[in-house]
Design a protein around this nucleic acid. Structure first.
Lengths: 174, 174
DNA sequence: GATTTTTTATAGTGACTGCTACAAAAAAAT
DNA sequence: ATTTTTTTGTAGCAGTCACTATAAAAAATC
C-alpha cells in the first residue's frame, strides 16, 4: 500500500512489491493472482481505514455542512506527505496508468466514494446534491494533487477552510 | 502533444511518438535529444497556446476577481475530453511518472503558472495572495482531475461557477 | 557528374516489465 | 516413517522500454 500510494500503480514493479513483502514472484502470484489483484486489495484496505475521511467525518455526526467541512479538514490533515505517501490513493493511485484493470478498480472506488457523499448531501438538498457533490469531489481531488506536488498541512488547511465556506454558501443559499 | 496529453508521459512510448510524427527512432533522437526533450518542447508549446487559460483570461482585462472567474470558466470549457485529451497537460501530464526529468519539467511549468496567478492577485490583495492562489490552483487541479475522470462541460462549468463565487467571497471579505 | 555531408532506415543494445515452468524444500497426512 | 500435498526459490518466458551503432539513401556542395 505504501509503495502504490507513494509512486502510483505503474511505477511500482512486482519484484519490488515482492521484496517489500518478503516473498518471491511465485508466492506473490499465488497470494494475489496478479499485480492488479494486490492493487484491488490495497484499495479496499485503504478505503476501509482512516484514509476514508468522509466515513470518519460522518461518524462524528452533525448536519451536512458540518460533516463536509470535517471531511475537508481531515483530508487537509491526511493528504500532505508522510513517509513518501501523499494525496489520496484512490484518487491518484492509478492516474495515468497504462493498465485498464487498475484504472477500472480506481474508478469504481472513486464512484463509490462520490456516491456516498452525494447520497448524504441529498438528504438535505436533494435537487442540488449532484452539483454539491461535484464541488466536494473537485476540492478533494485538487487537494490530493496539491499534496502530491508538495503542499503542506498549513496550505491545505487554508484551502480546506475556504472550500468549507464555499460549500456552506452553496448549500444554504444562492 | 496529443499523445502525452491523452495518456500521460510514461504511458506513451518513443516508438509511438515517432510513428505519430512519421519518423523513426534515430530521427527522433536527432530532433529532440530524448523523450524528455520532446516533453519539454511539448509543455512549452502547450503553455504558449490557448491552453494557458490564465493568460487568455488576463488578456480580457478586468479586476482580479473578474480575471480569475474567467480563468476558471475557460478551464471548464477546455478541460473536458476532446479527442482523447482531457484536463491540463501541465498539471497532470507527468503525474505518477517514474521519470524524474519529466517530473521536474512539469513541476517547473506548474510553479511558473502558479507564480503568474499569485503575482496577479498580489496587486489587489498582497497579504492574502498566497492563500488565494492556492485556492485557484487547487480548483484547477481538481477540475483537471475530474475532467480526466470523465466530467463533462456542464458539470465542470457548475463547479467553476461555485469556485468563482468562493474566490470572490474570500477576496472581498472575511 | 563526382564527392562530401546530412539524414534516414535496419537492426539491435541492455535493462526492465508482468508473469510462469520447473524443481527443490517444507509441511501435512497417512 | 513414508507418502502426499503445499509452498517456495531458481531461472527464465516473451514482450516492451528508451536509446544507439552501422550502413544505405538522399541532399548538398564542388
Amino acid at each position: 500500500m505504501r509503495l502504490f500510494h507513494a509512486r502510483g500503480y505503474d511505477a511500482v514493479g512486482v519484484a519490488e512489491l515482492g521484496a517489500e513483502l518478503g516473498i518471491k514472484p511465485p508466492s506473490f502470484y499465488a497470494a494475489f493472482g496478479s499485480k492488479a489483484g494486490l492493487f484491488e486489495r490495497t484499495l479496499r484496505r485503504y478505503a476501509a481505514g482512516e484514509a476514508n475521511v468522509f466515513a470518519r467525518a460522518l461518524a462524528g455526526g452533525g448536519d451536512v455542512a458540518t460533516v463536509i467541512g470535517r471531511t475537508l479538514a481531515l483530508a487537509a490533515e491526511l493528504y500532505p506527505s508522510q513517509e513518501g505517501t501523499a494525496g489520496c490513493l484512490v484518487l491518484d493511485g492509478a492516474r495515468n496508468s497504462a493498465d485498464p484493470e487498475a484504472q477500472a478498480l480506481a474508478d469504481a472506488a472513486k464512484r463509490e466514494g462520490r456516491a456516498a457523499v452525494r447520497d448524504f448531501i441529498a438528504a438535505e438538498a436533494p435537487d442540488r446534491a449532484d452539483a454539491l457533490a461535484d464541488l466536494v469531489v473537485v476540492a478533494m481531488m485538487g487537494m490530493s494533487a496539491a499534496a502530491r506536488d508538495g503542499a503542506d498541512r498549513e496550505r491545505l488547511g487554508r484551502v480546506a477552510a475556504m472550500m468549507d465556506r464555499a460549500f456552506r454558501r452553496e448549500m444554504s443559499g444562492a
